[in-house]
């Protein structure tokens, strides 16, 4: 028997919900957090100065290219890569789809009504995440090099507060990058039968390791994001002479 096809359920208006909790807090906090970072980064990237002091180099300006044909801040030459990595990151996608595009603003809360195409039309570029990930891995190495270089002052080996800031920056960035869903896919997620393929067991173990990082991808995304900004701010303030770098060793 054909069962009676009931009518469509009623359309749900934007923000319509029966939820009683403070569901709007999370998207608003996310929006504020992301906006603050974007504003600062844009400002800092356009400065084109105060990004270096002693052995310290701001992560916004690393690798540092100084081309004569490039009239703008050197940061603009490179920031598209980590920016693209974060823009297409599965966690950030969730964050900004919820916070800015209200698709949906929160679970079981009415979404913005428009001709939604998900990631099939305009947002199909999100599929390039893996490509940005390859670059992001390169950046982990570059920023690690910067962190190592930060131990070598003009007067020889040493540790300053800035050194620690840059070391932590490299570590956090690695935690964020190697917990990436694309990495997870490539190291082992794409295998269907570990016991049937070459190196199946190590791949499974690697996949599990990445999965553990991935479990906290959101945490690493936020902490590494703000730490990069903080690292730039620190180098900037020291370079501007507003604060003095604390020399520990």
């Amino acid at each position: 028997m054909e069962r009676t096809t009931a009518a469509q359920p009623a359309r749900i208006a934007l923000f319509d919900t029966s939820r009683r909790d403070l569901w709007w807090v999370a998207p608003m906090a996310t929006a504020a957090g992301l906006l603050l970072f974007v504003v600062y980064t844009t400002w800092a990237a356009f400065q084109g100065e105060h990004f270096e002091w002693g052995p310290y180099l701001s992560p916004f300006y690393s690798p540092h290219f100084a081309f004569t044909w490039w009239p703008f801040s050197p940061a603009l030459l490179i920031l598209w890569a980590p920016g693209g990595f974060r823009l297409t990151c599965y966690y950030y996608r969730k964050a900004y789809y919820r916070a800015f595009m209200w698709n949906p603003p929160a679970c079981a809360v009415g979404a913005l009504n428009h001709s939604y195409r998900g990631e099939r039309a305009l947002f199909i570029f999100q599929n390039l995440h893996r490509f940005f990930m390859y670059l992001a891995v390169v950046f982990v190495f570059i920023l690690s090099y910067d962190a190592v270089r930060a131990f070598f002052f003009a007067d020889g080996f040493g540790i300053g507060l800035g050194t620690l800031v840059l070391v932590v920056n490299a570590i956090l960035l690695a935690l964020f990058t190697f917990g990436c869903n694309s990495v997870r896919h490539l190291v082992g997620g794409n295998v269907d039968c570990y016991s049937c393929v070459a190196l199946g067991k190590p791949r499974h173990q690697l996949w599990r390791l990445v999965t553990r990082f991935n479990d906290h991808h959101m945490l690493w995304a936020w902490v590494s994001l703000y730490w990069v900004g903080f690292a730039d701010l620190y180098v900037r303030l020291v370079s501007m002479g507003v604060i003095t770098d604390l020399r520990i060793l």
């Binding site: 969730k94 698709n103 949906p104 079981a108 939604y116 998900g118 990631e119 099939r120 199909i124």
Partner: peptide, 11 residues
């Protein structure tokens, strides 16, 4: 099955 429609908002 349109996997691209999902925008991984995790609800």
């Amino acid at each position: 099955f349109g996997v691209g429609y999902c925008n991984i908002t995790k609800c």
